[in-house]
Amino acid sequence: MKRLNIIDNHGWTPRKLRKQERKIKNAHLRQRVMAVRLVMEGYLGKDVASMVNVCRQTVSHYVSLFNEGDLELLLHR
Rank of each mutant, 00 (worst) to 15 (best):
Q57C: 05
I6G: 02
V48W: 04
V33P: 03
R56T: 15
G11W: 09
I7V: 13
L74H: 04
F66T: 12
L29K: 15
I7F: 02
Q57M: 10
L73W: 00
R22H: 07
L44K: 12
G45Q: 04
S50M: 08
C55T: 15
R37H: 04
G11Q: 11
R77D: 13
L71M: 07
S50I: 11
L44V: 12
L73E: 06
M34V: 09
H61D: 11
A49W: 06
G11N: 12
D8A: 06
R30E: 15
L4M: 09
K25I: 12
H76G: 12
V39M: 08
S50R: 10
E72F: 03
V48H: 05
R32C: 02
T58M: 15
S64F: 07
V36L: 03
Q20G: 00
P14L: 00
W12S: 02
S50C: 03
L29Q: 15
M51W: 03
K46F: 10
C55P: 00
P14Q: 02
E21L: 08
R56G: 08
S50Y: 03
D8M: 01
E72G: 05
S60L: 10
D70C: 09
D8V: 12
R15I: 14
H10G: 09
R15A: 10
Q20N: 01
M34D: 02
L75M: 10
K19L: 14
M34G: 00
M1F: 05
D70W: 04
G45K: 03
W12H: 06
G11K: 12
R77Y: 06
A49K: 04
Q20D: 01
F66K: 11
